[in-house]
């Protein structure tokens, strides 16, 4: 199955799980499965129009889905989807 890698800041909404396995055949389906399983995650990933929030990027392999077919991008069975949030730590 394809995998979605959950970044640390969002793991508090996935019961501290770092990986989610999905049978979704598109990125949108995969994200839907993720948010249906972890319902508290949805409002942090998607806005009211179900679009990805602007501080979140989603990658299929090494490619930003915005440079592919966005949510309609096909997901192979061995694909790795990365959710990448903005983080800001560094000094304190």
């Amino acid at each position: 199955m394809a995998k979605i890698i959950i970044p640390t800041p969002l793991r508090k909404f996935t019961d501290n799980s770092g990986v989610f396995e999905t049978t979704g055949t598109t990125v949108q389906e995969a994200i839907q499965q993720l948010t249906q399983t972890h319902t508290n995650l949805e409002r942090h990933l998607l806005d009211d129009h179900k679009n990805l929030r602007s501080f979140i990027r989603v990658y299929l392999g090494e490619d930003d889905i915005n440079s592919l077919q966005k949510g309609a991008t096909s997901v192979a069975k061995d694909a790795v989807i990365s959710i990448v949030p903005a983080i800001a730590g560094g000094s304190h």
Binding site: R53, A88, H92
Partner: peptide, 14 residues
């Protein structure tokens, strides 16, 4: 990469 920041409180600082 990130046109806008997350809302305060969502991504905790260190």
């Amino acid at each position: 990469m990130f046109p806008e920041p997350p809302p305060p409180g969502l991504v905790p600082n260190c």
